[in-house]
Design a protein around this nucleic acid. Structure first.
Lengths: 352, 352
DNA sequence: GTTTCGATCGTACACGTGTGCAATAGAGAG
DNA sequence: CTCTCTATTGCACACGTGTACGATCGAAAC
C-alpha cells in the first residue's frame, strides 16, 4: 500500500518546501485532479459523496489552491489595483478602508500603491498593475488622472475614480456633492449674520475646488452678498499651505469674520494661524471645514464641517468596479450627498 | 511573407481581448520565445544585438510580461501581504506608506488587508494571502499576533511584525523604544516641577502599554515620586475611551497636574474632555502624547509628544522582510529610537 | 436481450513564462 | 582539412489549475 511517497523523484527539495498541489490531494483521495478541482468548486458534475470526501481530505491536509495558477488559466486574477496619492492622508485612508472591506467581502484582493503625487511613480505602479494582470483599477484623488488614459487603453481593464480632479476624462467615478455641500456651509454662515466670508481653497483648477468655490458663491449671492475677490485665496489642501494663505486674509484692512476652508486639513492650519495671531475661534472669526475627518470633533473648538461618507464612497467605488469587471453596466457618475455638521467653530457674527 | 496572422485558430475571441504574450513578441522578432524571455531578463546567453532588437520590439508593442505566469514557474510572486488592524488610523497608514514605498522600490507589490481587529477576518485575509502565494507577510499593531503562529507554520513564509502587542511570539519585529520614550516624557514633566503625574494608557496587557507604563514609573522613581495607583488609568488608544478614562482622574480629590497619554489619539480625547470641564491646557493641567501624528503640531495648544519615525519603521520592516525572503538572516528585534518633541501642551507646574 | 441516456470520472489539453539541455554555427588550433 | 571550443539559439519540458471532450457504467426503456 503506497503511502504519501510519491515515487516521482528522489531529488533534493528546492528551498521553498513545495506547497502541496491539487495533484497531491488527488492522490490522497484516489481520484484524478480534475475531480478535485470540480469538487472544490462545488461543481454538480461530481458525486456528492466523493466531493464531500475530497473536501474533507483537502481541508485536513491544509490545502490552499494556488490563486496564481488559477489566474493563469482563468485569465481573471480577482485582484484589483488601488492607487492613491498617499495613504498617509486621513481622507484617502478612510476611502481605502471602505474599498478593501468590500473587495475582501467579494473575494477580491487589492494591490495598494502609493504614487506620492509623483507622475513617474504613478506610471510605474500602473505598469506593475498591468504585469500583475489586475482585473480592475481604482484611483483616488489623483492629480494626474489624464495620465491614465493611454494606460487604460493598453490594459483593457475597467477603472473607477474617486474624487478625481479632472472632470470628464473618465466615465466612471464617485464623488461628493461638492457644490451643495459648500453652499450649505456658506449659507449656515450667512444665517449667522456673517457678511464678510472668505474662501480658503485648494490649488486653483482642481474640480472639487472649483465646485466648492461655486457653492460658496451661490450661497453668498442668495444672501445678497457680492463677490469680493480679495476674500478668495488658495492653499493646497494641507495645513502648512493654509497657514500661509490665511495670512493674506488676516492682513486685510477689513478682515473676514468667517472663512470656509476647502477641507478639514486646511481648517486645521487656518485655526492654528488664527490662534498665533492672538485671535479666537469662533469669537473673532468663524472657521468651517469639509470632510469631517476623525479629528474634527476634537479640535479646540470642535469643527463645523461637511461630512463626507468616505468609507461608503470607497464601498460604492468598489461595487461599481465589480459590476464593470463582471461585464455589467454601472452608473457612470455616482454622486453622494454631503451632510452639514454644526459644531462650535462657527458662531453668530459680532455686531459691527 | 506571413504577417501577424498566426494561423493558429480562427475561433472567436474570448471577452478579455487577449493580452499579447511572449510568443507574440517571439513571432514579431522571428526568434523563439525562450530567446525573448532571456532578452528581457538581460541574460548574457543571448546576443547583444538580438537582445536589443527584441527589447525594442517588445517595447513598441507595449508588451508586459505576465507576473502571474512568471510566479507560477518561478514559485516566487514578488508580492507581500500586509495586514493592518485598520488603515483608517494615522499611525498605521504612515507605516503602510513606508512599507509600500520600499516594497515598490524593490520590485515588490503589496496586498493590503484590513483586519478590523476581527480575528475571524484576520484569519480570512491570511488565508487569502496563502492562496495568493505571497513571498512574505508584514503585520502591524496586531492585537492577535498569536493567531498567526499556526498559519505561519503552514505557509512557510517569513513574517515581520511592527509594534506587535504580544512579545516573544515572533522572532522578527520592529518596535519603538517605548520605555525610554515614555521615561523622557515623564522626566520632562518632573523637571517642570510636576509631582502628581498621571498615566492614561492603552488596554492593560499590551506590550507597548506595559513598556510605556514602566518608563513612566522609572522617571517618577528617579524624581523620588512614589507610585500612586489611582493615577494610572486605561483607555483603548482612541479618543473616545480616553474621554471616559480621564474622568476618573479629574474626579479625584487631588487631581493630577499632568498626564502622560499612551498616544496622541488618547491625548486628543483627554484634551477635549479637560476643556469640557472648563479647565485649560497647560495652565491647569499639562498633557503629553506619544507618536507625533500629523495633527500634533496643530492642536490647541500644540502637543508635546514623542516622535515615532513611522515611515522609517515601515521601511525597516520591509527591508528586513526582503532579507528574509532572500534567505539571508536579519536582525530579529529592531528597536528604533524615540525623540522628545516639546511643544506647548506641557508647562511648569503651578505653585501649590 | 439490446439500446439509450444520464451520471461520473479521467484524458488531454491550455494558460504564459522560465530553464536545462541539445543543436548549430563559427572561430581558432592543430 | 579536421577537431575542439564557445557563443548563440531552439526544443522540450515544468509550474498548478480549469475545462472540453470522451470513456465507462448502471439504470431505464424497448
Amino acid at each position: 500500500m503506497p503511502e504519501k511517497n510519491t515515487g516521482k523523484s528522489a531529488g533534493v527539495e528546492k528551498r521553498p518546501h513545495r506547497q502541496l498541489s491539487i495533484k497531491d490531494i488527488a492522490r490522497l483521495a484516489r481520484v484524478s485532479h480534475p475531480t478535485v478541482s470540480r469538487a472544490l468548486q462545488n461543481s454538480p458534475l461530481v458525486n456528492a459523496q466523493t466531493a464531500a470526501k475530497i473536501r474533507k481530505i483537502a481541508d485536513e491536509a491544509g490545502y490552499r489552491a494556488s490563486a496564481v495558477a488559477r489566474g493563469l488559466v482563468t485569465r481573471r486574477t480577482r485582484t484589483i489595483g488601488l492607487v492613491v496619492t498617499t495613504v498617509a492622508d486621513p481622507f484617502a485612508s478612510e476611502v481605502v478602508c471602505g474599498i478593501e472591506q468590500t473587495a475582501n467581502d467579494h473575494g477580491y484582493s487589492v494591490f495598494l500603491a502609493d504614487s506620492n503625487a509623483d507622475p513617474a511613480r504613478e506610471k510605474k505602479v500602473v505598469q506593475a498593475f498591468a504585469e500583475r494582470r489586475v482585473d480592475g483599477i481604482i484611483v483616488t484623488s489623483s492629480r494626474v488622472g489624464a495620465l491614465y488614459l493611454p494606460l487604460l487603453a493598453e490594459m483593457m481593464v475597467p477603472i473607477v475614480l474617486v474624487n478625481d480632479q479632472h472632470p470628464g476624462a473618465f466615465v466612471h467615478s464617485v464623488m461628493i456633492e461638492n457644490l451643495s455641500g459648500m453652499r450649505a456651509i456658506a449659507a449656515h454662515l450667512t444665517k449667522l449674520g456673517h457678511r464678510r466670508i472668505a474662501y480658503l481653497g485648494d490649488r486653483f483648477g482642481y474640480q472639487s475646488d472649483v465646485e466648492r468655490l461655486a457653492g460658496y458663491r451661490e450661497a453668498l449671492h442668495e444672501a445678497g452678498i457680492d463677490d469680493v475677490p480679495e476674500l478668495v485665496v488658495h492653499g493646497d489642501g494641507k495645513p502648512e499651505a493654509a497657514m500661509e494663505a490665511i495670512e493674506k486674509l488676516l492682513a486685510l484692512a477689513d478682515p473676514p469674520t468667517a472663512v470656509c476652508c476647502y477641507n478639514d486639513m486646511t481648517a486645521l492650519g487656518a485655526m492654528r494661524k488664527i490662534r498665533m495671531h492672538g485671535l479666537h475661534v469662533p469669537e473673532d472669526i468663524s472657521v468651517a471645514g469639509f470632510d469631517d475627518l476623525f479629528f474634527a470633533r476634537y479640535t479646540q473648538p470642535p469643527l463645523t464641517t461637511i461630512r463626507q461618507p468616505m468609507r461608503r464612497m470607497g464601498q460604492l467605488a468598489m461595487e461599481s468596479l465589480i459590476k464593470l469587471m463582471s461585464g455589467e453596466e454601472s452608473v457612470a457618475q455616482i454622486r453622494v450627498d454631503a451632510e452639514l455638521i454644526v459644531r462650535e467653530s462657527t458662531a453668530r457674527a459680532r455686531k459691527q
